[in-house]
Structures are given as structure tokens and as C-alpha cells.
Amino acid sequence: MITVEISDPRSPDSHYLTEKLSAELATITGDSGKSNFTSDSMNGDRSLWVLARNIKGEAIGCGAIRPLTGDIAELKRMFSDRSSPGIGNALLTFLETSAKSMGYTELWLETRLVNHRAVHFYKKNGYVRIENYGPYIGREEAVCFSKPLQD
């Protein structure tokens, strides 16, 4: 059983998982992803950091949303340690539901084209490719996705 809970991005469990994510991203893409995310970016009212835990209470995944515009939230730092199936889906479902309840109508995200697992995961979950936005404009290695949050 996987549970998802709101957490502090500065907690030891959060730090542990984000370091694992950064190391994995560096291996896959050559970039840790740290330059486009800091825990301070989670300080806003409409930002949310969550952890997934297994039945033993161990942190096994993380993810975040933060505002891009009044209606659009950005999905950040999604990570599953893949210790059990369904971690990514549990995180994504929680974050999408939370974003909708916070008044967002759409989620955007960026990943790298070479991160085939992530690209497949987001496409499988209804995300469609959009033009690169913000810091990803003009970066051929980046791919951006969007999903409307529907009723």
C-alpha cells in the first residue's frame, strides 16, 4: 500500500529522495535538474510538496507543484525509487487532484527527451507535448508536456 502526504521539502526524507532523483537524472541526462528547482520555490501559498510512503512508512517517492500562472501549475521533482509498482501513479494522482482543488486548470512539466521512462509515463497518463516554455525555450534536449485538469 502506498500513501501520499503533504510534507516539508527540507525534511530529511525529502532531501534523501531529491538527492537520489538528482543522481539518477545526472546519469540519464547529464544534468541533475537542480538548477530549475530549489526548496525555497515551495514557499508560496499555491505550492505543494508531497512524499509517497510504503506500508512501513518509508519514503519511496516525491513530487511537487508550484504556480506558473494563475491557472497553470508546474509539476516538479517527480521521483519514484521503483521499490513497488504504482508509486508514480499515486504521486501524480495526488498532485493532479490537489492542483485542481487549489484552483489550477492545467499542469505543465518538462523532462528530457532521453528520459524515455518519464516521457512514456507522462504520455500514458494523458499529458500531451507542448512548445517549450520558460527556461526550456530553445533547448532541444528538453520536452514539455501539458494536461488539463478536468472534472
Rank of each mutant, 00 (worst) to 15 (best):
M1V: 07
I2V: 14
E5G: 03
S7E: 10
D8W: 05
S11E: 04
P12V: 00
H15L: 12
L17R: 03
T18F: 14
E19Y: 02
E19R: 12
L21C: 02
L21R: 13
S22R: 12
L25K: 05
I28M: 06
T29D: 07
T29N: 14
D31Y: 05
D31K: 06
K34S: 10
S35W: 09
F37A: 05
T38A: 13
S39Q: 12
M42T: 08
M42F: 10
N43G: 00
N43H: 14
G44A: 13
D45W: 11
R46D: 07
S47W: 14
W49F: 15
W49Q: 01
V50D: 00
V50H: 01
R53N: 02
N54M: 05
I55T: 03
I55S: 01
A59W: 02
G61D: 12
I65C: 06
R66Y: 11
L68D: 07
G70K: 07
G70C: 07
D71M: 12
A73K: 01
E74P: 01
F79T: 10
S80K: 03
P85W: 00
I87R: 02
N89M: 07
A90Y: 01
L91Q: 08
L91K: 09
L92W: 03
F94W: 03
L95N: 06
L95V: 14
L95A: 06
T97E: 15
T97G: 10
S98E: 10
S101Y: 04
M102P: 07
T105L: 11
E106V: 08
W108P: 00
W108K: 06
V114R: 13
R117H: 09
R117P: 02
A118V: 04
A118Y: 10
V119F: 12
H120I: 00
F121W: 05
K123L: 11
K124T: 14
G126M: 08
R129Q: 15
E131H: 07
G134Y: 11
G134N: 12
Y136F: 15
I137P: 07
G138V: 11
R139L: 14
R139K: 15
E140I: 08
F145K: 09
S146I: 09
L149G: 09
